[in-house]
Computed example of a mutant assay.
Amino acid sequence: MSPGPGLPPLGDGDIPEKLARVIEAWPYKLHRTLAHSPDTLLTWLPFGEHILMHNTLPFREREIAILRVGWNARCAYEWGMHSIVARRGGFGESDFEALCVGAESPHWTPGEAAIVAAVDDMQSRWTIGEEVWGELAQHYAPDQIVDLVWLSGNFMTISLQLNALRVPLEDGLPPLPEDRPHYTRAT
């Protein structure tokens, strides 16, 4: 997150009444910052919840994609929040190390490597290259590929919001590793 001006998360006394239930369910600084635009938050949230928790990708693949988006976007908030979620879901240190390396890491299964490569392509080329598309198609059904693109795009947007609005980190988030390059794939 960049220092400097941003929008402060709204405190409890400043939350519009129509957002009370949303903030009760999602009490995070991201949602409290997005509450500056209540109607947009209310419109986006059902989609965000669906794409996060109910799309056709398995949990592991979803978190790999989200964490790689956060890594590529240098979004400490996204990386930290989803590091916690991923650890609760069984991710270990070798998973996080591989996320910082990229699709070339021997840690990944071929399908997982395709997810990482697809995220890298989408963030660096605004598409998925033919070779990576071929790998994805070998491991995932068409509905899963569509959901991967929706998931990645949504979390690219969230990372942009977090970084651009300078949303403060939640207390206790693990830091974003700083010792590796931004992208590992050729662009």
Rank of each mutant, 00 (worst) to 15 (best):
S2Y: 12
G4D: 05
L7Y: 12
P8F: 00
L10D: 00
D12A: 09
G13D: 08
K18Y: 06
L19M: 02
E24M: 05
W26L: 10
K29M: 02
H31A: 01
H36Q: 10
S37K: 12
T40P: 03
L42I: 06
L42F: 12
P46S: 02
E49C: 06
I51G: 03
I51E: 04
L52C: 05
L52H: 08
M53V: 03
P58H: 04
V69Q: 01
V69H: 00
G70I: 02
G80L: 10
R87M: 12
R88W: 07
G89V: 04
G89W: 08
S94T: 15
D95K: 05
D95I: 02
F96D: 03
E97T: 14
C100L: 10
C100T: 12
V101H: 11
V101L: 13
W108G: 00
P110T: 00
P110W: 10
G111R: 04
G111L: 09
E112A: 08
A113K: 04
A113R: 10
I115S: 07
V116I: 15
V119W: 12
D121F: 02
M122A: 05
Q123Y: 15
S124P: 09
E131I: 08
W133C: 06
E135K: 10
E135H: 13
E135T: 00
D143W: 15
Q144R: 02
I145G: 04
D147F: 14
L148Q: 05
V149L: 08
W150G: 00
G153Y: 13
F155R: 05
T157M: 11
I158H: 14
S159C: 10
L160A: 01
P168F: 06
D171R: 12
G172H: 11
E178I: 00
D179Q: 09
R180L: 11
P181M: 01
Y183D: 01
R185F: 08
T187A: 13
